[in-house]
């Protein structure tokens, strides 16, 4: 289980679940914690959540597969969520996506060959004043231009490489 969650975090969740009136409320927190650690939530991650919170695996699965920021399949180290909702769309989100696809050599839903980036769409990020926008990890970037995108990607590559 250790590769899913550091022991201290696991203990913390177990302790919380034990004293909570409704342990199930920790599902999203626990899924997010596992994802932070593993990058995504594998099947045994679902098992772990079910085990810690005392619910059935299907009860975890139906929640995990509902949210688009929980990944139930392997993704790259960084997931790029490109907003395609109306404000970004009206400001050229399709061009942003084109540029990302060309630069990374992948289509939506795919992961770059180096395993660094996965490209996914997202609905509105609440960055409508900074359209077009994208989110990588928990950081929102906008307004985007091809230059700005290249710069962000370069920074992340450098961070990952270094």
């Amino acid at each position: 289980m250790s590769e899913l969650l550091p022991q201290n975090q696991l203990d913390e969740f177990k302790a919380k679940a034990n004293c909570a009136d409704h342990p199930q409320e920790l599902i999203v927190d626990l899924l997010r914690a596992i994802q932070t650690e593993c990058g995504w939530v594998p099947d045994h991650g679902i098992d772990l959540v079910a085990d810690v919170l005392g619910v059935l695996p299907v009860e975890v699965e139906e929640v995990a597969t509902f949210y688009d920021k929980i990944y139930r399949y392997p993704v790259g180290k960084r997931v790029i969520h490109v907003c395609d909702s109306v404000c970004c769309w009206a400001n050229g989100s399709e061009d942003v996506l084109d540029h990302l696809q060309k630069t990374l050599g992948i289509n939506l839903g795919q992961t770059s060959a180096d395993g660094l980036f996965t490209l996914l769409p997202t609905c509105c990020l609440g960055a409508c004043g900074e359209a077009p926008a994208m989110m990588i990890g928990l950081t929102t970037y906008g307004p985007l231009t091809p230059e700005r995108i290249d710069q962000v990607l370069a920074e992340i590559r450098e961070e990952a490489g270094g």
Partner: peptide, 21 residues
């Protein structure tokens, strides 16, 4: 902290979300 879906803004869906359902 949620994990992303518009429907959670509907108040009863939000309550299910809070309950971990």
């Amino acid at each position: 902290r949620s994990a992303g879906r518009y429907i959670l803004g509907e108040e009863t869906a939000l309550l299910n979300g809070l309950e971990g359902k």
